[in-house]
């Protein structure tokens, strides 16, 4: 475990806590894409199949349970919570995310490390995580103004992936046989998707203005 990976996991955790804070504090999920949250729940469920079979460390197991539990709780909240679900902007959350699931699964069947059930699902979860933010970014552009906590949520999600890229660079130079092409390439694509959001986030922060994304 290196500092970049720990920082990445912590910013990932913070992004989830910020989202939970927004939903519970404001009793509202306006501006949040349910589709992105469903994709994240699918990412964690298909990636952490080894939760019950391979024990790596307490930290690893606890974080997997936290990620699975929180993503399912957020999806449940946005679908079932009698107050929160009323604030879901269904008409703004129109990205056809089933295409993302189909495309990433097709890619996972073509590009994988080993042709086994778990490895295919692992590759699928890696590819799906790279594009899972798209419905959320599209929804932010549709809704124009981004509320403060939602902006922070997306920012921390992007920061988590940026730290992971530093982690892979660090491991590449310090560990003899570290090659994770699938995770690295997919992680680069994922971080690139945040690039324009980071740009507008930085501009709004510099001008101390409200974050506005061009439609």
């Amino acid at each position: 475990m290196n500092i970049f990976r720990l920082a990445g996991d912590m910013t990932h955790l913070i992004s989830i806590l910020v989202l939970l804070l927004k939903i519970y504090a404001t009793k509202s999920c306006s501006g949040i894409s349910l589709k992105t949250q469903e994709l994240y729940a699918l990412v964690f469920l298909t990636r952490y199949l080894d939760l019950l079979t391979d024990f790596i460390s307490i930290y690893n197991t606890v974080m997997k349970l936290v990620f699975i539990g929180s993503s399912l709780a957020i999806v449940w909240c946005m679908r079932r919570h009698r107050v929160v679900r009323r604030s879901y902007d269904k008409e703004l959350d129109t990205f056809r995310h089933y295409f993302l699931i189909a495309a990433t699964f097709a890619l996972a069947v073509l590009v994988y490390e080993k042709f086994t059930f778990r490895e295919i699902l692992w590759a699928f979860s890696i590819y799906l995580e790279a594009v899972a933010i798209l419905p959320q970014l599209v929804m932010l552009q549709r809704s124009g103004n981004v509320d403060n906590l939602t902006g922070k949520y997306v920012f921390f999600l992007g920061a988590y992936r940026a730290f992971y890229i530093l982690n892979w660079i660090y491991r590449y130079f310090t560990e003899a046989r570290f090659t994770r092409w699938i995770a690295c390439v997919s992680g680069l694509v994922q971080t690139a998707l945040y690039a324009d959001f980071f740009y507008y986030y930085f501009i709004s922060w510099k001008n101390n203005a409200k974050l506005k994304l061009p439609a």
């Binding site: 990976r5 996991d9 990932h12 080894d50 391979d54 790596i56 690893n60 974080m63 997997k64 990620f67 490390e113 080993k114 692992w122 992971y164 982690n167 046989r177 570290f178 090659t179 994770r180 995770a183």
Partner: peptide
């Protein structure tokens, strides 16, 4: 190369 390495990242 990877097979020896478990998936230790989240």
């Amino acid at each position: 190369a990877l097979n020896g390495q478990t998936k230790d990242e989240l």
